[in-house]
Design a protein around this nucleic acid. Structure first.
Lengths: 199, 199
DNA sequence: GTCTATACGTCGATAGAC
DNA sequence: GTCTATCGACGTATAGAC
């Protein structure tokens, strides 16, 4: 119920998000026109405005959804508080890779199109990003406190590890030399070593 | 000689490159118009075409210059072949940070605007980038061979280390908590640990 | 819900005066 | 070397028919 007879609005809305994600990732927000998106969806340009107030809102919706998905996915799989910092760090690394690797387009635009957000929208995304960074920073701080990690600066280590992990999306290809599982082990080793963790 | 009387073309050419770099970094290639750039330079839009064939050539020129500067700067300070892998890695890390940190805008557009290059221009930049990556990869491979480093995969370690180092540009501010020298030491420690180097 | 038609602005690039 | 003027195309977004 509550569905209008003969309409397929939900399907169109989904197609719109998918087409926008793909096109923004490939060509950039500013370089993609509403006409292009409409062509991909299979409707006329004017029809898109039934699903988004404007182009900016469309972009923000994609980024906001991505960040919410990320934080909710973490909450849904967060390890109990009883585990050691090393276990927590391993959990975080594996989570980060498994979440980000299959979402290349979303991750890409979430980093590349930040500057195309209005200041208000930018702040919302930045807040979510800081929340995510704080997860890793808390783990590193705890490990630093009980001397399982040896870090000069936990704040910079947080940035460095996230940059290292996310950089994976720039080179990883499904058909490539390495499977997802192998990539996970390799990065896990790099992160543990960088943190100075004894394993 | 060879300078036309009364002209200030060289100064304008330089201003054009600087304005384009700043604006592309801040707003993105696709979002910046030739009229905006002209306004920044202090000339009319038409006058820009005395200095660049078109907008694409302008972008490519900036990226190509940046990559050439990078590779030439490395050659100019390359350590003699006699040093150990650890010394070489330290040299590379310090070089990378000192080169990239003061060039935030150039580095930013060199990563963000790759997709706005024509395929031919993209290939030129990619080749230069692979040349730079090979420098680090050679160092890691040598250290792996003589067992000063302990890496699961030198190719991925290369990507990971460069991503980690370059990520610094997203958070570093001159007025921030840490000086360039301190950042250098912190990242050096992270890289050495990640490589499994005994120091 | 989707269409056509269109308002209205800006774009990259060029022509020709000075 | 720089200007003004302009071309033709394309941009976002809206109005109103169906």
């Amino acid at each position: 119920m509550a569905r209008k007879s003969g309409s397929n609005g939900e399907k169109t809305a989904k197609q719109l998000r998918e087409a926008a994600t793909t096109l923004f990732a490939k060509n950039g927000y500013a370089a993609v026109s509403m006409r292009q998106i409409a062509r991909e969806v299979g409707v006329q340009a004017g029809a898109l405005y039934l699903y988004t107030a404007d182009k900016q809102t469309l972009l923000f919706g994609l980024l906001d959804q991505h960040m919410q998905d990320l934080l909710q996915a973490w909450e849904a799989r967060a390890t109990p508080h009883s585990v050691t910092p090393i276990d927590k760090l391993e959990c975080f690394v594996r989570f980060h890779i498994r979440f980000h690797l299959p979402r290349a387009d979303e991750v890409f635009i979430s980093y590349m199109e930040l500057r195309n957000l209005t200041p208000e929208n930018f702040e919302v995304i930045q807040t979510a990003r800081r929340t995510y960074e704080a997860i890793l920073h808390d783990i590193l701080s705890a490990g630093q406190a009980d001397e399982t990690f040896k870090l000069v600066d936990t704040k910079i280590a947080t940035y460095a590890i996230i940059a290292m992990l996310t950089g994976m999306n720039t080179w990883y290809r499904d058909e490539g030399r390495l499977s997802l599982e192998m990539v996970e082990e390799i990065y896990l080793d790099l992160v543990m070593s960088a943190a100075g963790a004894k394993r």
